[in-house]
Design a protein around this nucleic acid. Structure first.
Lengths: 232, 232
DNA sequence: GCCGCCGTTAACATCCTGTTCACATCATTT
DNA sequence: AAATGATGTGAACAGGATGTTAACGGCGGC
């Protein structure tokens, strides 16, 4: 039978980890286990993880810094699992972009549907937006795995994170007019109120890097009063 | 500044509802309020709600049945807000597809990022699954996703934002006489008291672009003393 | 802790477009 | 048919939206 979703349990205590993993497997999920950040990264690199169950208290790397690292590079679902009950911890984690926060001891019948509901959303998004595949447009190549852009001549072009994400969003929706709101949702970082003029500036910088004539843009075209559209 | 997300607070107690709504508005979200299922359905029909904050204990309709109803027809984000602390209630709601379950009294700083993180996911999915369909009339095609109009020959026609929205309104109500007031509500931006002659000018410009003979309009016909009607 | 990078904000210039106006033309009523 | 009001028409205006550049400041790397 086909597995439902791919869950990654990150937890140093073997008993907790295996117990949770077992329950998840019972629900017919594919479950990977990691006891530290290094193991986690190795599994995560496969790119097909839907939800990460992340323990905060781990020897070595802090769970929160792992959370930050994940959020910086991925829209994967993240559920923090910890014994810390304090509101502060919860709030910090949530504001860093965690989708959920569950305190031990937890009821299995509660955590399972949470993981499943979250995984459903992540997987649905992945279906229509496979973000691990290189996209090309009129000679240019955009490689999300390596965060690189190469021009038609094969020369690499340096892009910043925001520029890259913005271009990736455009490339994923060619011909569709995108409002600044929509673009901000893909580019903006969490915990930061962002003015929509930021998009304008980023568009300007992108144009300077990829348009033959930045003053006469043909790839990223302005739609006055609405937003921008990417012509491939 | 543009609004972040559209949240819908469903709660019968005015104090709780307005408090929560106020905090959400502070976060720069567009917030709608409903005190029962009927009001909720009316707002929800607009189709642009990202997250619903749903109280379980409401007179009349049960929050859980509303949850079921929503889940059956939509992938909208749903956060249950309730004073019931029992595990059973939580589990039932989660298994019915609720994304989160928060018990009163809750910490605002906790519920806000939860709502925001969830809304981000919902909005991201909405972007790649635009349910906006292109409308056609006598060979012309009006495509809301691309904000473009193409003539019967397949040639694109440039329309301004107001022109497009006006034509979209007409196309949505073919054969129905629309007054200038009605049209202004769809075209004009709020907070700007506009003379109804604006519509006349816009109609004129539209005719020049889409009518075979602008001096003998057949698509957008004047109904003297009332308004205009769109013949498809 | 310092430095460099980069996202954000601000400020100003420029362009676009919704609105308004003036006048011509048409429809309706008397 | 004349009078009156509504609509057509073109142009001009003003305000908002976008282009552009520069400076700030937070965050991560060293």
């Amino acid at each position: 039978m086909k597995k439902n979703y791919h869950m990654l349990v990150v937890e140093d205590d073997p008993v907790s980890r295996q117990t949770l993993a077992m329950y998840l497997r019972k629900e017919n999920h594919e479950v990977s286990e990691a006891r530290d950040g290094e193991q986690m990264r190795r599994v995560f690199a496969r790119g097909d993880v839907d939800v990460v169950m992340l323990d905060i208290n781990m020897p070595g790397e802090d769970g929160l810094s792992i959370l930050r690292e994940l959020r910086r590079q991925s829209e994967v679902g993240i559920i923090m699992v910890t014994s810390r009950k304090e509101d502060v911890d919860r709030i910090v984690a949530l504001e860093l972009g965690a989708d959920d926060y569950v305190t031990k001891p937890y009821n299995m019948r509660e955590i399972l549907p949470r993981a499943k509901n979250l995984a459903r959303r992540v997987a649905a998004l992945r279906l229509v937006r496979p973000d691990q595949r290189a996209t090309t447009f009129v000679g240019w190549t955009l490689d999300p795995a390596h965060w690189t852009l190469t021009d038609p001549a094969g020369h690499p072009v340096k892009l910043t994170r925001a520029e890259f994400e913005l271009l990736a969003t455009f490339a994923a929706h060619p011909g569709q007019v995108l409002t600044r709101d929509q673009l901000m949702n893909h580019v903006g970082r969490r915990g930061h109120e962002t003015l929509d003029r930021t998009i304008d500036v980023l568009v300007r910088r992108l144009r300077r890097k990829i348009e033959a004539d930045p003053s006469d843009p043909r790839l990223i075209v302005t739609v006055h009063g609405i937003g921008y559209v990417f012509q491939a």
